[in-house]
Simulated assay, not measured.
Amino acid sequence: MMNAFNFDSKQFDTKQFEAMFFGPARAFAALSVDYTEKLVNAQLDATKAYSDTGLAQVRSLMNVKDAEGLRTYMEGQQQVAKELTERLKGDAEKVVSLQQDFVQKSQKLAETNVKQAQETATKASK
């Protein structure tokens, strides 16, 4: 009985294994690491921006000494809310863009690898 996982490895040389298995695995790992690094950096940038904004608001509130200062602080809150909304929108768009780029590159890599594997398997069977 023939098992699908039983194949004669002697028919594949090192270059064929590289082309069919190791090369594609390394390429996908590199793509995944690149994506993860970009995503983590985007998240760190966003976290720092939100933290800085929050701390700046606490400092501003601590400097309020009178009714006029409170009024100015409250007016400033509208601008801060607007800026945070824009920042959240931009951060979400950045993450979506990174995900789309990763999917597109993954699909292209998979298509290339399938084509290479078919060519390598065809050469090995001759």
Rank of each mutant, 00 (worst) to 15 (best):
S97R: 11
K65W: 04
K65Q: 15
Y73H: 06
L44R: 10
G23D: 01
R71P: 00
S60M: 07
D91Y: 06
V33F: 06
Y50Q: 03
Q16P: 02
M62W: 13
V103E: 12
A29R: 10
R26L: 13
K82P: 00
A19Q: 08
T72W: 05
K89C: 09
Y50R: 08
P24S: 01
M62N: 12
L98S: 01
S97D: 13
A4T: 11
S9R: 12
T14M: 15
Q107L: 13
T120S: 15
E18G: 08
D91H: 09
V114R: 03
Q16M: 15
F21W: 08
Y50N: 04
E86I: 05
D101G: 00
F5Q: 07
V103L: 13
S125T: 09
K105F: 04
V114E: 03
K94L: 10
Q11C: 10
R87Q: 13
G23Y: 04
N113G: 07
Q43D: 11
N113Q: 13
K10A: 12
P24F: 05
G54V: 03
A67T: 07
D91C: 03
D34A: 11
V103F: 13
Y35S: 03
F12W: 14
L61C: 04
D66Q: 00
S32L: 07
L31E: 04
S125E: 10
Q107H: 09
R71S: 02
L84K: 04
Y50G: 02
G54F: 12
D66A: 02
Q118L: 13
N113W: 03
E18M: 12
F7T: 05
T36C: 11
G23I: 01
K15N: 14
F102T: 02
L61F: 13
A121K: 08
E37R: 09
E68V: 10
A110H: 07
E93T: 04
L88I: 07
A92M: 10
D45P: 01
A29E: 06
M1C: 11
F28P: 00
D8C: 05
S97G: 14
L39Y: 11
A4G: 09
K89Y: 09
K126E: 12
T47G: 12
K65E: 11
Q79L: 10
F21R: 04
S60Q: 11
S9M: 14
A27H: 02
T112P: 04
T53V: 09
K65R: 14
Y73D: 00
S97L: 13
F102S: 04
A81M: 15
E119A: 15
M20S: 06
V103M: 12
E68C: 02
N3Q: 13
D13K: 07
Y73T: 00
E18D: 10
D66C: 01
E111K: 03
A117S: 13
Q57H: 03
E68T: 10
L84E: 04
M1V: 14
E111S: 05
V64A: 05
D45M: 06
G23P: 00
G76K: 01
V64G: 00
E83S: 08
A4M: 14
L31D: 01
V96A: 14
E119T: 10
Q104C: 05
K48D: 02
L39K: 15
T36K: 09
R87E: 06
D8H: 03
S125G: 02
E68M: 07
M62H: 10
V33I: 12
A46T: 05
T85R: 15
A19M: 02
Q100N: 10
Q100H: 12
L55R: 12
L88D: 13
F7Y: 13
